[in-house]
């Protein structure tokens, strides 16, 4: 044995011990690899269980009469017609309010705003609003739209609900539109300006048409989130039990998630498990439809670029 290797042995690169600890380390490695894989799947497995459970209880109750009937205290004749209508009304009104506002704000921040402290404050404010719990928006809606502006909105009406939801999803729309605008290279803007175009002419003729598909994807996702919102609508006065179909923006209303909440809160299993599940199935179907549309839109848009 040469002097060198003796020293190496003494330094603590333990001969036989070293080998053992390697296999321990490898063993731990395999355990860890399995662990992280399982962890990734846990959420998906639970989701699958959830979907199966909901389908199992809900699908048998789906029928045309379920969609066209009104809620009733008799489980077999209860339906979701007015709340489905309410959700659609809310969706339409919310889209009408939030989309122009969101796109407008994004255009301002990306194309007009200079780097002043005030504009930076506006940006920070929007990021912050994205993290405010939805129920706080409900309180905002209650205080301002339902009570303060009661003469205009008619109190706990569809328009109050739509305004509340619009404010809720506004930050998401703004962020999505900004990303889409940022993706457009500056050469497009320069080409437009060089022809003697005003800023709006460049934005309107070139930037917005190019940014719209991307912005729309984010917007549709935001709107689909609004469909599933429950808490802010309850706070803003959406009825938890509605026997008539809403007939205008000033009408009282309810929404599908709220009907589900009402049914889940009933002690009878026909409501709590059966009807609630059926309502959930309809809700999820609507969401899958809108989200798929958004994804399809994004893929189509990406191919063009």
């Amino acid at each position: 044995m040469t002097k060198g290797s003796t020293q190496a042995t003494q330094k603590g690169a333990q001969g036989p011990d070293f080998k053992t600890s390697t296999s321990v380390r490898y063993g731990l490695d395999r355990v860890f690899a399995a662990l992280v894989f399982v962890a990734t799947l846990i959420g998906l497995v639970v989701l699958a269980v959830l979907l199966v459970d909901v389908a199992k209880d809900g699908v048998p109750l789906l029928s045309w009469s379920f969609i066209t009937s009104f809620p009733s205290s008799i489980p077999t004749s209860a339906g979701i017609y007015p709340v489905l209508l309410g959700s659609l009304w809310l969706l339409a009104l919310t889209a009408l309010i939030s989309v122009p506002l969101g796109i407008g704000a994004a255009v301002y921040l990306e194309e007009y705003a200079t780097d002043t402290w005030l504009n930076r404050l506006v940006e920070v404010n929007i990021s912050n609003l994205a993290g405010v719990p939805s129920i706080i928006y409900g309180l905002l809606g209650l205080g301002i739209f339902v009570n303060l502006l009661r003469p205009i909105t008619g109190g706990p009406s569809l328009i109050s609900g739509a305004l509340t939801l619009s404010l809720l999803i506004l930050p998401v729309i703004i962020i999505a539109t900004r990303e889409a605008l940022r993706a457009i290279p500056d050469t497009v803007r320069e080409g437009g300006f060089a022809l003697g175009a005003t800023r709006w002419e460049v934005i309107g003729s070139h930037l917005l048409p190019m940014a719209l598909p991307g912005a729309l994807t984010g917007t549709i996702l935001a709107l689909s989130r609004a469909i599933g919102e429950t808490a802010p609508l309850i706070v803003v006065g959406a009825a938890t039990y509605l026997t008539f179909a809403p007939d205008g923006p000033l009408s009282r209303y309810s929404a599908l998630p709220i009907q589900i909440y009402y049914w889940v809160s009933q002690p009878q299993p026909e409501f709590q498990v059966g009807l609630a599940a059926a309502g959930i199935v309809v809700l999820m179907a609507v969401l899958i439809l809108t989200n798929s549309f958004a994804v399809w839109l994004r893929n189509r848009y990406q191919r063009r670029i």
């Binding site: 609003l129 405010v132 506004l170 709006w200």
Partner: peptide, 24 residues
């Protein structure tokens, strides 16, 4: 006028925060 409209849209978010704080 268009610039004013866009600026107003951006300030809706500021109004929202003020609204929340005020109501609370």
């Amino acid at each position: 006028a268009i610039k004013v409209v866009f600026t107003a849209c951006a300030y809706v978010s500021v109004l929202t925060t003020f609204g929340i704080v005020f109501v609370l």
